[in-house]
Measured scan of single mutants.
Amino acid sequence: MQIFVKTLTGKTITLEVEPSDTIENVKAKIQDKEGIPPDQQRLIFAGKQLEDGRTLSDYNIQKDSTLHLVLR
């Protein structure tokens, strides 16, 4: 499925993911596309910070959802 990741600069990254993918996995995909190390990434969805060990389906993230990427 496709999800979107919006950065603070207003750029939107499109990712191909599975509901069973972990947040860690998603961060690795963002690193592949953007070169941002996962340890600098914070992903936010519906006002919640997403934890590495959980999956997209744990957070009820569905296709065409938009996550927000904050760098630390």
Rank of each mutant, 00 (worst) to 15 (best):
M1G: 07
M1P: 02
M1F: 09
Q2Y: 05
Q2I: 15
Q2M: 10
Q2D: 07
I3M: 12
I3W: 00
I3P: 00
F4Q: 05
F4H: 13
F4P: 03
F4S: 14
F4T: 05
V5M: 04
V5T: 02
K6M: 15
K6L: 10
T7N: 06
T7V: 13
T7I: 03
L8G: 05
L8R: 10
L8T: 14
L8H: 15
T9F: 02
T9H: 07
T9R: 05
T9D: 06
G10W: 02
G10Y: 04
G10M: 09
G10R: 02
G10S: 11
G10V: 08
K11L: 13
K11V: 15
K11G: 10
K11E: 12
T12F: 11
T12H: 05
T12K: 01
I13L: 07
I13P: 00
I13F: 06
I13Y: 08
T14L: 02
T14S: 10
T14Q: 04
L15V: 12
L15Q: 01
L15S: 01
L15H: 01
E16F: 03
E16V: 09
E16H: 12
V17T: 07
V17R: 01
V17S: 08
E18F: 05
E18W: 11
E18D: 07
E18L: 11
P19M: 06
P19A: 12
P19W: 10
S20H: 15
S20R: 14
S20A: 15
S20N: 09
D21L: 07
T22F: 07
T22S: 12
T22E: 05
E24D: 06
N25F: 06
N25T: 05
N25E: 14
V26K: 00
K27Y: 13
K27H: 12
A28W: 09
A28K: 11
A28M: 08
A28G: 05
K29I: 04
K29Y: 10
K29D: 13
K29L: 11
I30L: 11
I30S: 01
Q31S: 07
Q31N: 10
D32P: 02
D32E: 08
K33Q: 12
K33R: 14
E34Y: 05
E34D: 04
E34P: 02
E34S: 04
G35Q: 11
G35F: 09
G35I: 10
I36H: 06
I36W: 07
P37R: 10
P37I: 15
P37G: 08
P38V: 10
D39S: 07
D39M: 11
D39H: 04
Q41T: 14
Q41P: 14
Q41L: 06
R42D: 15
R42F: 14
R42S: 15
R42E: 14
R42I: 07
L43G: 00
L43I: 14
I44M: 14
I44Q: 06
I44K: 14
F45D: 07
F45P: 00
F45N: 08
F45Y: 09
A46F: 08
A46P: 01
A46E: 14
A46Y: 04
G47K: 04
G47P: 01
K48F: 13
K48I: 14
K48L: 15
K48R: 05
K48A: 10
Q49A: 06
Q49M: 07
Q49V: 03
Q49L: 05
L50A: 02
L50N: 00
L50Q: 01
L50D: 00
L50F: 03
E51I: 02
E51Y: 03
E51N: 05
D52W: 04
D52K: 02
D52G: 10
G53Y: 11
G53E: 10
R54V: 11
T55K: 13
T55M: 12
T55P: 08
T55D: 07
L56T: 05
L56E: 00
S57N: 08
S57W: 05
S57R: 10
S57E: 10
S57L: 06
D58G: 10
D58W: 06
N60W: 04
N60M: 07
I61N: 00
I61T: 04
Q62F: 07
Q62R: 08
K63Y: 07
K63W: 10
K63G: 12
D64L: 04
D64G: 03
D64E: 04
D64V: 02
D64K: 02
D64R: 03
D64F: 13
S65W: 05
S65R: 07
T66M: 08
T66E: 05
L67S: 01
L67E: 01
L67D: 01
L67N: 01
H68I: 14
H68M: 13
H68E: 15
H68D: 15
L69Q: 13
L69W: 05
V70F: 07
V70M: 11
V70I: 04
V70D: 13
L71Q: 04
L71W: 12
L71V: 13
R72K: 08
R72Q: 10
R72M: 07
R72L: 15
R72E: 15
